[in-house]
Design a protein around this nucleic acid. Structure first.
Lengths: 131, 131
DNA sequence: TATTTACCTACCATGTCAATAGGCAGATAA
DNA sequence: TTATCTGCCTATTGACATGGTAGGTAAATA
């Protein structure tokens, strides 16, 4: 299940892409347009900055702006950053401890196959495909 | 993320399939073989019975048994029953209230496409494929 | 009748989700 | 330089889900 965090992140990225070009965009404007609490968006936007997806500038006239062209953002990158991982089962997540049953686990190949399917799907889709 | 509930359910079904044929299989045996708390398995097995996937018989010599041949169980059916839904986002889940933003939601088609991919994947895979 | 089994209800500890609240820091326009 | 506008940081909260545990009842058969 994709949580609000990942979904809101996607909406922020889309909003920034649609109002791209001129100046930095204040978070307040994004929050009002998307009808999401600005305070909650701050948490999400912080992660997007930390992951190098967007850039923020403080002070009067500041705000946020995309770092790349919309077609250079795979959806999977946005979701993985905000959701932590797209892995289906815990033992296949990024920094997970290796499962001791892995060697004779009969379901592992299925999960791995599905994870690859998921990864390919969301990395082929770009931010520009949603606008 | 698939929780332990869905994963344990899969292991129970596989265990029943592997020890199929003769008599009813006591839950105690399954719990010991799979190294899962019998009490916790009771919760899961109850749902499998309720969904018509397995049959339970009380009394001495009782236990559980598959209702169909292993190749007639799609993995997706087992997971959907125990996990509630395989939907990626809340608004596409089974009994969800229709989202008011649905008509102009630019991400909905993507989620729907991914959900179909997921559904197809797990309904093509059968219990017999895992043994 | 005694045993073995399924089945039912309640409880709990931990963690995550989805926010809210209040304030600090930093940069720019005036 | 100062006022203002922005990002940024640290807690705190209530609700809910997860992953169990505990104790007991009902039912069927050897």
């Amino acid at each position: 299940m994709i949580s609000t965090k990942g979904r809101y992140a996607l909406r922020v990225m889309m909003d920034l892409a649609e109002h791209d070009g001129e100046a930095y965009i204040p978070l307040k404007d994004v929050a009002e347009r998307q009808n999401i609490s600005k305070k909650y968006l701050e948490i999400i936007v912080k992660e997007l900055v930390g992951g190098g997806l967007i850039a923020g500038v403080s002070g009067k006239g500041g705000g946020y702006r995309l770092c790349r062209k919309p077609c250079d953002y795979p959806i999977g990158e946005i979701l993985e950053l905000t959701e932590g991982s797209l892995a289906t089962v815990a033992c296949l997540a990024a920094g997970a401890a290796p499962c001791e049953r892995a060697s004779d686990c009969k379901t592992l190949p299925m999960w791995a196959e599905y994870d690859k399917l998921t990864h390919d799907f969301f990395y082929k889709k770009r931010l520009s495909d949603l606008i």
